[in-house]
Write a protein that binds this DNA or RNA. Structure first.
Lengths: 352, 352
DNA sequence: GGTTAGCACCCGTGCGACAAGAGTGCTAAG
DNA sequence: CTTAGCACTCTTGTCGCACGGGTGCTAACC
């Protein structure tokens, strides 16, 4: 949110109030709101005509527009933006919702399950789609590595990280290693690197490869080479997320166009584009909101994305988000995303 | 297909031909087909009036119906059924499609990837949704089991099956075991059970528990108990499937009702009901077709499911299916499902 | 000057009428 | 048994029309 396009726009108190009420009431009702009802509900004790004048100004500033002459007004993207940045009063979550989140995000679950339930909770509570990226492994701490020969040239690598996470991958070796050789290599790597995070491990391995190659014995050389193979593969294996509750989006008249909705769903499946969008906010701290075209991605043109990074220790390890029609209940979604991010972070954190 | 409700219905050659053409032409066009066009395209050299008479008979038999007086005719479920059972001439797949399948289902892929690509291929080729169940592990052959202590009471079990499949799960032990104890237990289990399929392993373990309990030493007893824990957990871990191309279904006007479509998608996510449906055909050999309400499951009322079990060795290990509107190109989908099932089976088989 | 009432006007929506077209069912003749 | 003919039904599209919500503008008002 470093660039705030609304900073410049000056609004009288009344205009501001009217915009706020307009957005709220459009979010609630989903229909263009006219001057009469706006005047009534705003509690400002002004006539519809006055409201119309104000609306004309807001329209000039690009904050609202009519879908056609003589329907009520609808907020534009910029209108939502202004609303969100300047008028949004977040309403704290109900205690029972918080309890539900806290219960669901049980620290004893595995990474994958945590991500999945987080996504499910986001969606279930907001009645919108939830997205949670799989946490980056780079900062996970290596606890143990083991090798297991499977068949000619294919070796199973078992990687235990943090307290409980297990990851296995199969690598191909260019020459056969004996079982005891593999054991020694594992021992070497464990002794040297257990307790460091994967990023550090990889850096360490690269250093060793570069540097003192000649004073390594064969075993060490093999260990380093093999390790590098493993950890480069692991670091590639990221960039994934879990979506829950796509179907919720089929409930909203706003997105009733089957074709657009299809494109949106396909985008969810394709993942790539969504990932790049989520990446954008991985280092914004706190909740971030993309409204309509702000996401700069066609399938999301009529959607808003409310996202927040989640943090383990000092490090941002992932992002979660809620996706729904532009016309969503921001005042509820924002705190939901916020708190879910915190709870997910701490659930992951407790597991070390 | 043991019960064939159409066996009884006698049809003149002409009626049969007309029904066939009607179904084909409705599948192609999606609109009720009238007597005039039917007469023309059937190539029978009869007048529309004659066709109308035949249609009246077919309607009496419940094979076709009009959406209302004086629209063309549409096949009923029973009509489709008759068509599929008695008139469907499967058209062999194009060679390039077969190549695409064969290439995609690379035996060197892991189980999970195979299932995923199979599902994707089914969907991509048919432009419908594809479903493939994860292969049952029961008949997979145990190659090796290893234990790795992780933290107090939590032990990682690594299970290598067939040539290349790795599965790991974490179990809780009621008492702590030393590393060497675990190693011995693993050795015991490996010696005794490597090469047998998981079902046999489990049976064996249960036998040992039941039977000769007293002449086992402590180690054996522990091994048996632990093993039982593992293999009972593994056998529960099944009953899953992978869906691909749900979004394709949003393309068809037949399923344009957003609500129904939502229910369908939710059914895909819920999985349970779909699984029970797929279970029904796991032991029918060859392709099976559920048309509309035949599936006996509301969300699928306007869909057909074309399914086939896939086989490794002698054993059916899973089912795959294509789901689409009742009005689908059966003559293409049937061979597609058939061949994909064979290729998936053999891809899994090659991997031992 | 800001605010308001009044008024002309615009435009989406719903409704009824109407014609066209497609298709049927029935009957009577071949 | 087949077919032509015909009356009838029902959907679809279009047009016109009235209605109502909402606007923009202007002129009066405080």
């Amino acid at each position: 949110m470093s660039i705030d396009p609304t900073e410049q726009i000056p609004l009288t108190d009344r205009a501001e109030r009217l915009l706020k009420v307009l957005v709220e009431s459009y979010i609630r009702g989903g229909q263009p709101v006219g001057s009469r009802s706006l005047a009534r509900v705003a509690g400002l004790d002004v006539s519809p005509a006055t409201v119309r004048n104000v609306m004309a100004d807001l329209a000039d500033m690009g904050l609202v527009h009519s879908p056609h002459t003589s329907a009520g007004r609808i907020p534009t993207t910029l209108g939502y933006r202004t609303f969100v940045d300047r008028m949004l009063k977040v309403r704290p979550l109900q205690q029972e919702t918080i309890d539900e989140l806290r219960e669901g995000l049980d620290p004893s679950l595995g990474h994958h399950d945590l991500v999945e339930t987080a996504s499910g909770l986001l969606s279930g509570i907001s009645h919108l789609a939830g997205i949670v990226t799989v946490p980056r492994a780079e900062r996970a701490v290596l606890r143990r590595i083991e090798f297991l020969e499977m068949s000619e040239g294919r070796t199973l690598v078992i990687l235990v990280t943090n307290q409980q996470e297990v990851q296995n991958l199969i690598i191909r070796l260019d020459r056969p290693y004996s079982a005891s050789e593999l054991e020694q290599i594992a021992n070497f790597l464990n002794e040297r690197y257990a307790g460091k995070d994967l990023q550090a491990v990889r850096r360490g391995l690269l250093d060793e490869m570069d540097g003192v190659r000649r004073d390594m014995n064969r075993l060490m050389a093999a260990a380093v080479e093999l390790g590098e193979k493993v950890f480069s593969a692991v670091s590639k294996e990221q960039d994934d997320y879990i979506v829950a509750g796509q179907t919720e989006l089929m409930r909203y008249g706003d997105l009733c166009d089957m074709n657009k909705l299809r494109h949106l769903f396909e985008a969810f499946n394709r993942k790539r584009d969504i990932i790049t969008l989520l990446d954008k906010c991985i280092h914004a701290d706190g909740v971030q909101i993309f409204i309509g075209q702000e996401s700069d991605y066609k399938p999301l043109n009529e959607c808003s994305v409310v996202s927040a990074p989640y943090v383990v220790g000092e490090d941002v390890v992932g992002v979660l988000a809620v996706v729904g029609p532009t016309r969503m209940a921001y005042e509820k979604v924002v705190p939901l995303v916020d708190i879910t991010a915190r709870l997910l972070g701490s659930a992951l954190n407790l597991r070390g």
